[in-house]
Design a protein around this nucleic acid. Structure first.
Lengths: 243, 243
DNA sequence: AACTGTGAACGATTTCACAGCA
DNA sequence: TGCTGTGAAATCGTTCACAGTT
């Protein structure tokens, strides 16, 4: 199990393990599979079928099989997947064996919550530093960690490799913070500020915008309301769009 | 060009315009366009080209034009889009003119932050109630609102139509809370608990999982490391594979 | 000339359906 | 028989490139 042959179709340079290049959509689902696998393992299961794992992860089984097939062949026909083996594989692919250091910039409402979020620690991430630009907040201790001034970022980065920077500042400072993070070598950013960041191409940014989530739900509420507002309730299929 | 309304061919009630049925991918981007439009309006602009708006929203202009074309023809060739008009249109489509009531269930770290999140109030959402199952938290006042016991949910729902329920509980209670929300008529749920919820088909659930976001970034860190670690031959990034 | 709106090409993702293995 | 792994088909989303409008 220490080797994953999986000779990706692209005959890359060297005869090395080579990183399988997974579709983005697959990558985004792997963490959910992993959570489901851990859950099953805790419940004492040793193997699981694609059907069972798919149900636990909230997807359909064909999609799950296709996703897992990108990692290699870790299932047994007629039986299912070995849970422990699959957990190892997925954790390896996601790089979760590294216990990556995370810093949070902006200790407002949200940053405060993120600093104390147990879900991070329990999944291979260590929140190692909190920063804020407000000197009144510097020194405040949250979850056993003292808030430092953003000017100390470079110093902290020199002591410890920061793998991921989390931006929880107001949108007006977010770009400046992103620039700082990039300057000290951070190449992955999770942005909670409602704005677009521009960063060099080697830096990955993911954005979480809470208001946008509500707005999307609002759209669906609006849509549902406009359907139920129709006279006769249900009606046969619609759509002959295009004029 | 064609009329400003895509009609579903089925009947419409009263004066309510028919609902265009937009691709999900487009819907998810509309809030970002809206934010960019507000930003431009504050800066004093009256019109904007697809190029300009696309840049402000972080997408390319072809995609933006295609997205907006689904709403109807609100641009002027040779000129661009009228910002005020487009703001109205997008807000209408997203149903943001309704000032929807939101409740937050689970007043831990994260729920606390959500209760005080200014980004909600400023975008057409009112957080009208906070719930928790822990009697020790009931009565605590957050952001001018007293935390109520979850058993009061039905009472509150009877007084005011709750459009959206936000779940910020531990994953072990999330399904039970979802069932409660559904029982009192909530048809849109924003779930922060790391678990899959099952709900009736008329209920929309969106999930935000902070650990998953970090894991996706971790994957990309891993990938980048495995690429830069091989200058031309040997791959050596001192990590033990799985087990 | 500048810019939108949109068919058509392209690419990515999902689903189907079944061959092949335990 | 039961279940995975996977080509092929279907669906969805993006990008191109240009006709059409102001």
């Amino acid at each position: 199990m220490s080797q994953h042959r999986h000779g990706s179709t692209s005959g890359e340079a060297g005869g090395v393990p080579a990183f399988p290049d997974l579709p983005e959509a697959t990558i985004a689902r792997l963490p959910e599979y992993l959570r489901a696998l851990h859950h099953l393992a805790e419940a004492g299961a040793e193997t699981v079928s694609s059907e069972g794992l798919a149900a636990a992860a909230g997807v359909n089984s064909a999609k799950l099989r296709k996703d897992l097939s990108h990692l290699g062949s870790y299932g047994t026909r007629g039986v299912g997947y070995d849970i422990a083996l699959l957990v190892d594989q997925v954790e390896y692919i996601l790089g979760l064996d590294k216990n990556r250091a995370v810093c949070v910039v902006g200790v407002g409402n949200l940053g405060h919550a993120l600093a104390g979020y147990a879900g991070f620690a329990s999944r291979g991430f260590r929140v190692v530093a909190l920063f804020d630009a407000d000197r009144k907040k510097v020194g405040e201790v949250i979850n056993g960690m003292a808030v430092r001034h953003i000017d100390d970022l470079a110093r902290v980065a020199a002591e410890e490799t920061l793998a991921i920077g989390v931006i929880a500042t107001p949108p007006t400072s977010a770009q400046a913070v992103a620039d700082l993070l990039v300057a000290v070598g951070v190449t992955s950013i999770l942005n909670f500020a409602p704005c677009v960041l521009s960063v060099p191409p080697n830096v990955d940014v993911r954005k979480v915008d809470l208001a946008i989530e509500l707005q999307i739900l609002s759209f669906h509420e609006h849509r549902k309301a406009s359907l139920t507002a129709l006279p006769g309730g249900r009606h046969d299929d619609q759509e002959a769009v295009g004029s």
